[in-house]
Design a protein around this nucleic acid. Structure first.
Lengths: 203, 203
DNA sequence: TGGTAACTCTCCTTAATGGAGAGTCCATTT
DNA sequence: AAATGGACTCTCCATTAAGGAGAGTTACCA
């Protein structure tokens, strides 16, 4: 039996009661998140501000690796696991991934099923998935200040002519900076480059 | 003495040891954040994963209004306040703002000084500032599905021609959708509209 | 039925993009 | 002290894409 590479579609099938992924958690909050939990649970959780009390959150902050919800020993005074069951989130696995090399950023996911525990194979596949996403979202480090400066101004809705004027360089220079930025970010358009840099927290 | 309207520049002077603002915290994480804390503290805080233990964070999650750090009674087993002092964050105020009307989103800020406590007037001004930002960041609700669909594809680096083809409409139609989206978002260019929609969590 | 709002389209102007090439500033070699 | 290579910056030009003004088409609601 092989784990194989899995994609977003496979995850939906595997976590049939929903899942949540937070990518590149830094100082306090992540760079990106994927929330495929049931809307009812999202609303209830939000209104109740459960995050700080959620044993899953506490576990992923403190640990690295994977654990079934049923194996988490952190106290649950607010009965969040019980409340989650009411929304179909009965069995689950929490996965936390930490890239020692980077600036302390970690990513985690919490996946839920309503019918049975996750198998070891599934947990392995999901761990690999989180790990992949974590590395995919690693921001490029070679984008120069001049390039980011131009990207920021694009994000702010400025035109190339205006950017050139404000920076005191030619329009051609601005174009080149944006062209370089696009290559480094792997973006096809200026709009995509600006949103990517924004999500990476570069600008 | 008047509180008056304050801007980002004024905040830097008022919180002379740094500040942190999280805007529109929903399910777990905020839509936007401003981090003007000292880099040394950011690194230490990140590496130590203090967030879940930080009495300030716990306070702003549970309460609405403003409180001086010295008045917070939540236990601080990890001595985060003491550790913060080593980075110049000696006196502080936490401000939490909740807009009952919206979908449970709240915003908060934590501001620090190294020399003295914040005055009531300052706290009032900072509260107003957070409140303003909170309302400024309220996502528009009138952007249509078709418009968001087009914005998403712009964000993904697609060209108008390709978007039109994939959606089965004319290129002019796509332009019109983007124009409407820009008006509703208050954006000057498609790039700005896409990044704004992205930060609002609309796409 | 007149008003309004979303969507659609065309025509024209202006802006962005991509390719090829060249000068500048460094740090590393020769 | 050249020479080399790399990263960055800038120019020019041809092509393509985006933006703006205006008007037509549904469809729905008062």
């Amino acid at each position: 039996m092989m784990a194989g590479v899995i994609r977003a579609d496979d995850v939906k099938g595997m976590a049939n009661a929903g899942y949540y992924i937070a990518l590149r958690l830094g100082f306090a909050f992540p760079m990106d998140e994927v929330n495929e939990l049931p809307q009812g649970w999202i609303d209830y959780y939000t209104a109740g501000r459960f995050m700080l009390h959620d044993p899953v959150i506490r576990w992923v902050y403190m640990n690295t690796g994977a654990v079934r919800w049923s194996e988490i020993t952190i106290p649950d005074p607010m009965q969040i696991f019980v409340k989650a069951q009411g929304h179909g989130l009965r069995y689950g696995v929490a996965i936390s991934c930490f890239d020692g090399s980077s600036d302390g950023q970690r990513s985690f996911g919490s996946f839920a099923r309503h019918d049975r525990e996750f198998s070891d194979t599934e947990i392995q596949a999901l761990s690999a998935y989180i790990n992949d996403l974590h590395h995919e979202k690693a921001p490029p480090t070679n984008v120069t200040t001049a390039e980011l400066e131009a990207l920021l101004m694009v994000k702010q809705g400025k035109r190339l002519k205006q950017i050139a004027h404000e920076l005191g360089v030619s329009e051609g220079a601005v174009k080149q900076r944006l062209k370089n930025a696009k290559i480094k970010l792997g973006a096809k358009t200026g709009a995509q480059a600006a949103t990517m840099a924004s999500q990476f927290g570069l600008i």
